[in-house]
Nucleic acid binder design. Sequence first.
DNA 1: CATTTGTCTATACAACTGTATATTAATGAT
DNA 2: ATCATTAATATACAGTTGTATAGACAAATG
Lengths: 229, 229
Amino acid sequence: MIGGMTTSTPTRAPSRSPRRGQAPQGRKPVITRDDLIAAALKLVGPNRSVSNLSLREVAREAGIAPNSFYRHFRDVDELAIALIDQAGRSLRKIIGEARHRAASGRSIVRSSVETFMEQLNADEKLLHIVLREGTVGSEAFKQAVERELRSFEEELCVDLMRLAELNKLPIYEPRLVAKAITRLVFAMGTTAMDLPPDRHPELVEEMVKILRMIMVGTQTMAKEGIVAD
Amino acid sequence: MIGGMTTSTPTRAPSRSPRRGQAPQGRKPVITRDDLIAAALKLVGPNRSVSNLSLREVAREAGIAPNSFYRHFRDVDELAIALIDQAGRSLRKIIGEARHRAASGRSIVRSSVETFMEQLNADEKLLHIVLREGTVGSEAFKQAVERELRSFEEELCVDLMRLAELNKLPIYEPRLVAKAITRLVFAMGTTAMDLPPDRHPELVEEMVKILRMIMVGTQTMAKEGIVAD
DNA sequence: CATTTGTCTATACAACTGTATATTAATGAT
DNA sequence: ATCATTAATATACAGTTGTATAGACAAATG
């Protein structure tokens, strides 16, 4: 959106293995898509969003010529989407583990929230990105984030239903409960990113209490029938 | 962060009326701060965030020379913050009216959510900005948005407590309830922005149900005492 | 070997950026 | 009328951007 754009073909679209399963031809790539993603990751920070990284910046960080970028992605935007996907995958894996780990123990709510926040501190970047970039950037970009959120919701929903059956405590509108919890955790996680880590515990406490309100609410509503307006 | 930055003074800081209450001296401004804000407003859109507007763009839109911008703001960032403040003020005013209007009627929850969504469609821009830009941009910028959120929370909190006393239905941790509601409405409002308006009613329905869960939850928790982990 | 095929680099360009410097224009005070 | 003060403009510069074009390099295939 900035430089001298002269229309016409952008050199060429990234070439995707022409003959599957065969030995590739031509020069060996000195850099991979993932290297570029890693380079981009190094550049994002609390005040730097993926959506306004420049192609040249990423190329510089990765140690390749600007034009080489096109061999791997059509756009920075396309890179950004790949980044979101990877972040989402890693996040889901981690939360999945937390879930199974907690299934034996006592409170799913607390342990899930805690893992979420741990992860926020740990890999430092991937989760940040999913949280922060959901609202800016291109349409495709936002859809990628929305996709992650939805996938989260669905997993949480089946969890909730299983839990309800297990405890003989039915819940009202599990789909909505999952949505509420997801959005809330993500929203509060986002504000947590810009807070010093020593204030995270109190935030966890708040989140647990809030989530418990929601759970109690949905359970009593299931028990007593829905109140009117 | 882009152009040829050569350090040293940026021409001069914006001059603020040297002798208060007196007639101003020198040439009359052809443009005001608010004109610049309005110009910036025209430029933001679903894929354009305030934080990456360029000084020159805003100046162009406002019909002034690039350098004249400095007479009014030190930065685009400073403009952005002024914009947030204004957006917050307008939003609070509107919700305030909705609150008093609803005080006589039946459900505060529903009518507040509805006004919120109406406003999302109406002035089209101001609310969008507060919702979208909370997570990107400079530190000062994010703090400005956080300020608005907090102010919202506080108002909602006193509302909740008054309502509790009125209905003789005490609530558990009203501050947290207010926080939960605020974050949730803002989060879901954000995703609503990128949805066609004909899907807004169903979203309102979802939000109302969720908020009701929270209310029921906090009320039964106040009644029955807090459940353990 | 030469050929083909794909990757990467070098160079170049025009658009755009923020802002320093200098000048002009308009207003109130003297 | 002159001066001081302030606002706005014009010009210029250096740094950055995206990308077109062309050539250099490396590997598999003939």
